[in-house]
Write a protein that binds this DNA or RNA. Structure first.
Lengths: 255, 255
DNA sequence: AGAGTGTACTGGTCTGACCATGTGTTTCAC
DNA sequence: GTGAAACACATGGTCAGACCAGTACACTCT
C-alpha cells in the first residue's frame, strides 16, 4: 500500500549558507549580542565541521550585511556589531542608481517623503529636536553670506534635523538616499549661481515656515508646505497631474 | 626645502573588497547588464591577479547583495542579476526584528506609501492598468470562497497592480519591501481565521472603494481611503498622533 | 530530426601553508 | 613598584593545489 508520501522539494543548500543562517539566527535570538566576539575562524571550522574557506565565505556575507566585523590580528575574534540602518542607505541608493528610475519618479518620491517627514515631525518632535531645527535654520541664516555651497550644506542639515524629528528611521534613510541620488542627477545646484542670493533667501523663508508649523504641532500644514516647496523647486520635472495630485493633498477638501 | 606634502590617510583595503568594488562599479556603470555573465572564477583570478579564495569571497558578498548569482556547473559563469527589492525586504525585516526599526515606523512608512501610490495611480493609470486593477478585484471576489490564504494572495496582487499604475518604480520597490517585512513581522494573517470571512469582505469593499476613486481620477480621495484602510488594519501599532496626522491629511481642511 | 551519450569546464569544498598584524604578557630599566 | 619596551602567539588575509558533483553543449547514434 503506497502512502501519499508528503515529500517536499529539496534544494541543495550550500555549506556557507547554513553557517550564515545559524550565526544570523543566533544574533537575532539575542544569543549573540553586539560587542560579543565570535570564535576564531579556526575554531568555527571545528564547531561547524567545515573548512576555513567555507567559514570565511560565511563571514564575508555576514560582514557585508553589517552583522559582524573581522579585523586582522585581533585574537578576540570577529565582533558582533550593532545592527544599523546604515547599510540600508547603501542598498537604497544603489537601487535608485541602478533601476533606471526616471527623474520625475525620484522627485515624486521626494515630495512624498518630505511631506510625511514634516507631518510626523510636527507630531513627534521633542523639545530638544525643536531646538536642533531652530539652530539649523539660524545656521542657514548665517551661511547666506558664505555663498550657495555653504548655504546648501546648512539647508541639508536642517532637513536632516527634520527627518530626525520625524522619529522614523525609514524616512531618514530614504530621505538620505534620494537626496544623494537627486544631487547626482540634478547638478544645477551649482550653475544657479546668478540669482543665488534670492533663492537662498527664498529657501530660508520656506524652511522658516515649515519650522513654524512643526513647532506649532500642525502636521497637516507642515506637510503641505513641504510638498509645495519641493514642487516649487523641482516642479518642472514632474507632470502637471503629479504636481496637482501631490501638492493639493492637504489643503483642498475634496469637492 | 621640504614641501608641505599632501599626504593622505591610507587604509589597508582587502583584496576581495577591491574586486567587489570593481565589479560593482562595472554594474552600476551599465558595463555589465542583467543577464550578462561574469567570467568564471578561474578566469577572474587571472584578470584580477588574486587567488580563487579571494575571488570567491568577493562573489559571496556580491551575491549577498543580490547583484550576481553563481550556480554550480554552469559553464557560462556567474550571472549578473536584475536589481531587486527582495534584498531590501530582507534587510528591513532583520532591522525590524532586531528592534533597530520599530514596527510602528514600518507601519507609518507603509501608510505613506500606500496613500501616495493610490494618489498617483489615480492620475497616471492607463486604461490597460485600470482593467488590470479591475480584474484583480474580481479575482479577490472569487477567492473569498477559497479561504484567507488564496484571498490574501489576490489582495496582494491588487495592490501590486495599483503600485504599477502609479508609474513610480520607487514606490513599487518600497511597497514590495515593506509588504514583505510586514508579513514577516505580523503573522496574524493566519490566526485571524475565526472572523476571516468578514474581514475578507471588508478588505474587498475597501479595495473596491479605492478602485472607484482611482477610476474616477480622484487622487485625493484614493489616497485618503488607502491611508485610512491601512490605519484600520495596523492602526493599533502606531501612536494616536501618527494615526491622526497621517490619516487626516486629505480630508480635513486645516482649521 | 530527435533522443541519448559524452565531455569539458563550472562552482563548492577541502587541505595546508605563509605572512603581517594586533593583543596580552613578559621583560627590562628606572 | 611602575612605566615602557620587547616578545610570543593566535588571528585574519591570502595563496596554491586538489577533488567532486553538477550543468551546458556538442556529438553521437538511431
Amino acid at each position: 500500500m503506497t502512502h501519499k508520501a508528503a515529500f517536499t522539494a529539496v534544494k541543495t543548500v550550500k555549506a556557507y549558507e547554513r553557517v550564515v543562517e545559524q550565526i544570523e539566527t543566533a544574533i537575532s535570538k539575542r544569543e549573540l549580542r553586539p560587542g560579543d566576539r565570535l570564535p576564531s575562524e579556526r575554531e568555527l571550522m571545528l564547531t561547524f565541521e567545515v573548512s576555513r574557506s567555507t567559514i570565511r565565505e560565511a563571514l564575508r556575507v555576514l560582514e557585508s550585511t553589517g552583522l559582524v566585523r573581522s579585523r586582522p590580528g585581533d585574537p578576540r575574534g570577529p565582533e558582533v556589531l550593532q545592527a544599523s540602518p546604515a547599510i540600508l542607505t547603501k542598498t537604497v541608493s544603489r537601487l535608485v542608481r541602478l533601476e533606471t528610475i526616471a527623474l520625475s519618479e525620484l522627485v515624486e518620491f521626494r515630495i512624498m517623503l518630505e511631506g510625511t517627514a514634516c507631518t510626523l515631525a510636527a507630531q513627534h518632535r521633542t523639545e530638544l529636536q525643536l531646538q536642533a531645527m531652530r539652530s539649523a535654520v539660524d545656521a542657514m541664516q548665517t551661511e547666506v553670506a558664505h555663498g550657495p555651497i555653504a548655504f546648501s550644506r546648512a539647508d541639508v542639515a536642517f532637513h536632516v534635523s527634520v527627518w530626525a524629528a520625524s522619529q522614523n528611521q525609514l524616512l531618514q534613510i530614504c530621505g538620505e538616499a534620494t537626496r544623494g541620488a537627486l544631487i547626482d542627477m540634478v547638478t544645477d545646484e551649482l550653475d544657479r549661481a546668478p540669482d543665488s542670493r534670492a533663492r537662498m533667501e527664498l529657501s530660508l523663508a520656506h524652511d522658516r515656515e515649515i519650522l513654524a508649523a512643526i513647532s506649532a504641532g500642525d502636521g497637516a500644514t507642515a506637510g503641505r508646505l513641504a510638498r509645495s516647496f519641493v514642487i516649487e523647486y523641482y516642479g518642472g520635472i514632474i507632470s502637471p497631474q503629479s504636481r496637482a495630485a501631490l501638492g493639493n493633498v492637504a489643503d483642498e477638501a475634496p469637492a
